Amino acid sequence: KLETFPLDVLVNTAAEDLPRGVDPSRKENHLSDEDFKAVFGMTRSAFANLPLWKQQNLKKEKGLF
């Protein structure tokens, strides 16, 4: 399991300012399950079932792209 970080560490943070080991294209993977659901309004599995373009739009909207 990946290390999780608080939302404010990941949202609207440039790649070079992210904690070590965080993939800038997969910031959402480093949210706790609770934060993930609070941000996206759905579970990880529901998010994973969305088309890629919709996932990317949601990530942009939430500052996690």
Rank of each mutant, 00 (worst) to 15 (best):
K1N: 13
K1E: 13
K1M: 12
L2C: 14
L2F: 15
L2P: 14
L2D: 09
E3S: 09
E3G: 08
F5A: 03
F5C: 06
P6M: 02
P6D: 07
L7M: 10
L7N: 04
L7D: 02
D8A: 13
D8S: 12
D8I: 08
D8Y: 08
V9R: 12
V9Q: 10
V9H: 07
V9P: 02
L10S: 02
L10N: 02
V11M: 13
N12R: 10
T13H: 08
A14I: 09
A15T: 15
A15M: 12
A15C: 15
E16F: 01
D17N: 13
D17Y: 08
D17W: 07
D17A: 10
L18M: 06
L18H: 04
P19W: 02
R20Y: 10
R20C: 15
R20D: 15
G21S: 09
V22G: 02
V22I: 11
D23G: 03
D23A: 04
D23F: 03
D23I: 06
P24M: 06
R26F: 12
R26N: 13
R26M: 10
R26Q: 11
E28K: 01
E28N: 02
N29A: 15
H30P: 02
H30T: 04
L31P: 01
L31G: 01
S32E: 04
S32H: 04
S32F: 02
S32A: 07
S32K: 05
D33A: 07
D33T: 05
E34P: 08
E34A: 12
D35N: 05
D35I: 05
D35Q: 06
D35F: 02
D35A: 07
F36S: 00
K37C: 14
K37I: 14
K37P: 01
A38E: 14
A38F: 12
A38N: 13
V39N: 03
V39K: 01
V39L: 12
F40V: 01
F40P: 00
F40E: 00
F40H: 00
G41Q: 14
G41F: 05
G41P: 00
M42I: 08
M42K: 01
T43P: 09
T43G: 09
R44L: 05
R44K: 13
S45P: 09
S45Q: 12
S45R: 12
S45D: 14
S45M: 12
S45W: 10
A46K: 09
F47T: 10
F47S: 00
A48S: 11
A48L: 10
N49S: 14
N49Q: 13
L50A: 01
L50T: 01
L50S: 01
L50E: 06
P51N: 02
P51A: 07
P51K: 02
L52K: 12
L52Q: 10
L52M: 12
L52D: 11
L52P: 10
W53C: 13
K54I: 12
K54D: 11
K54N: 10
K54C: 14
K54V: 14
Q55L: 01
Q55F: 00
Q55E: 00
Q55D: 00
Q56S: 10
N57I: 12
L58Y: 04
L58P: 00
L58C: 05
K60D: 07
K60P: 00
E61I: 10
K62H: 10
K62L: 10
G63E: 04
G63W: 03
L64P: 02
L64A: 04
L64D: 03
F65G: 15
F65H: 15
F65C: 15
F65Y: 13
